[in-house]
Every structure is written in C-alpha cells, then in structure tokens.
C-alpha cells in the first residue's frame, strides 16, 4: 500500500513537470518546443536517426559510454588499490593525502587543455584526452570512498582474524575487502556519474568529433532545432539515471 502510494507520487511529479514545461513552451516564455514535439523528435532520433551526422541517438550514446567505461576502469584500477594502501598505512597516507587533496578541487574540465597537450603526438588525440578527463573525474570519488570504506572496517574483525593466524594477504582479501565493498561500490557509482558528466562537456570542446555531447553541440551549431538539443539532454539524463540506479541496486544487494 505504502509502496504504491510513493509510486503514484513519482508519476505525479513527472506529470507536473511535463505540464509546467508545456505551459512555459506554449506561453512562449522561453523559445522551447513543447514536450509532445520533443517526444516526437526524440522518437525520430531513436528510429531513423539524424541526417547531418547520419546516426541514431543510441549510437552517439554508445560512443560516449565506451570512453566513460575505459576512463573509469583505469581510474578504478588505480584508485581502489591506492585507497586501500592509504587507509592501511598511516605513513603512506601522510605521503599522498596532501597531494590528493590539492589535486581533487581541480575540476576534470580544467584538465581539458592540458590533456590535449599531453596526447598531442598520439593518433587519436581527442579520444585519449577525453578518456583522461573521465579518468580525472572518476579517480577521486573512487579513492576517497575506498579510504573511508576500509577505515570503517571494525578493528575487532581484523584483530580476530589475526589471532586465528590469518596472513596479511588473507586479512585483506577475506576481511577488509568484503567489509568495505559497499563503500567501494559507492565510489564506483559516484565516479561513473562524474565521469559521465565530464565526457559530455569534453565532447563539446575542441577537436572532439563524436559522442552525445558532440551531437548536442553540432545541433546547436547548425541551429534551428531545439527539440534535438533537448532530446540529447534527455538521453544523457536517462543513461545517467540508469547507471546510478543499477549500481544502487548492486549496493543494496551487497548490503545484506
């Protein structure tokens, strides 16, 4: 009963939003297409695609998503071990934490020009630069969540394992990792979210020539069809939402 009611509230909020949007569009408060017109364009982009770039919306999303996954995978495979090491060794944490805290406030987007310079001599400069920008975005949430996950492991569990003669490696794999996994997954979830936001912005700048961000920018550039721009934004929203919900679902399952 209670669950049904929250479901209804959720639907009501979407209907309210669409109504508001329709009102703003039909009163011409801003120059935006109505929700219905946008839905029509969105559906067209999914089925027949768009003539200028000659491709469907899904294909644009896939090329962005591919780069996000590559960049975040690298970020996680460096960030998570680093986080564990920092949480386990006070000396190592002292050595690295200041650096991490200094680099963390620099937004991924501020790295764009430098990234292009880094990879200037490689063939696909813009692709490498974008993967790097996603890496920067996904790295810090992964490190910080891993640290707090590992630190929150009950010391009694570790002591108990040690008393039973567990080796350092066994303590790491059998006690610390399982106990801190929910927080690590949170780090992965937040990192992917930041990475997804960064790639869209990176695709709008400079030498980039594919992906959903590039699609939106090109539609703006060619001009005249705001519904296509909004459709691209909706696609970004849906993909971000699904990624987040998917990982939340895994988090919840791991919690038991």
């Amino acid at each position: 009963m209670k669950r049904e009611r929250t479901g209804l509230v959720k639907i009501a909020s979407i209907i309210f939003f669409l109504f508001l949007w329709h009102l703003i569009a039909s009163l011409e408060l801003f120059e935006i297409p109505t929700p219905l017109k946008t839905a029509e364009t969105f559906f067209k982009l999914l089925t027949v695609g768009e003539p200028v770039l000659g491709r469907t919306l899904q294909r644009h999303v896939i090329s962005s998503l591919g780069r996000v996954l590559k960049g975040s995978l690298i970020a996680f495979s460096i960030g998570i071990p680093l986080g564990i090491a920092m949480a386990r060794s006070e000396k190592f944490e002292g050595f690295t934490s200041t650096l991490i805290e200094l680099f963390r406030p620099i937004p991924p987007l501020a790295w764009i020009p430098l990234a292009y310079i880094f990879f200037r001599h490689l063939e696909n400069t813009s692709v490498y630069a974008q993967i790097f920008i996603v890496f920067v975005g996904a790295f810090f949430p992964a490190v910080l969540n891993t640290i707090s996950g590992v630190k929150s492991v009950d010391p009694i569990l570790i002591d108990a394992a040690r008393t039973f003669g567990a080796t350092r490696f066994q303590i790491l794999t059998k006690v610390i990792l399982p106990a801190s996994l929910p927080m690590i997954i949170t780090g992965v979830r937040v990192g992917l979210g930041v990475g997804w936001m960064s790639i869209i912005a990176a695709e709008m700048i400079g030498g980039s020539a594919s992906g959903i961000g590039f699609f939106i920018w090109t539609m703006y550039y060619i001009g005249g069809d705001t519904a296509k721009i909004i459709s691209g934004m909706i696609a970004i929203g849906i993909v971000g939402y699904l990624m987040n919900e998917g990982l939340l679902w895994i988090e919840r399952r791991r919690a038991y």
Binding site: T47, T56, A209
Partner: peptide
C-alpha cells in the same frame, strides 16, 4: 527492440566516414 535496432549500424551500406578536423594543421 526499437532501442536496440538503433544501436546497430550495418557495416554493409555504401558509407564514407567523415571526421571533423581543423584544416590548419590537423
């Protein structure tokens, strides 16, 4: 099925790939 159909790009058509680059240098 609509979503998935749009994900696949057939490789068999008569396509020429285009890339956007700056004429000066790139």
């Amino acid at each position: 099925s609509v979503l998935f159909a749009g994900c696949v790009e057939s490789e068999e058509g008569n396509y020429v790939y285009v890339a956007k680059l700056s004429p000066a240098g790139e």
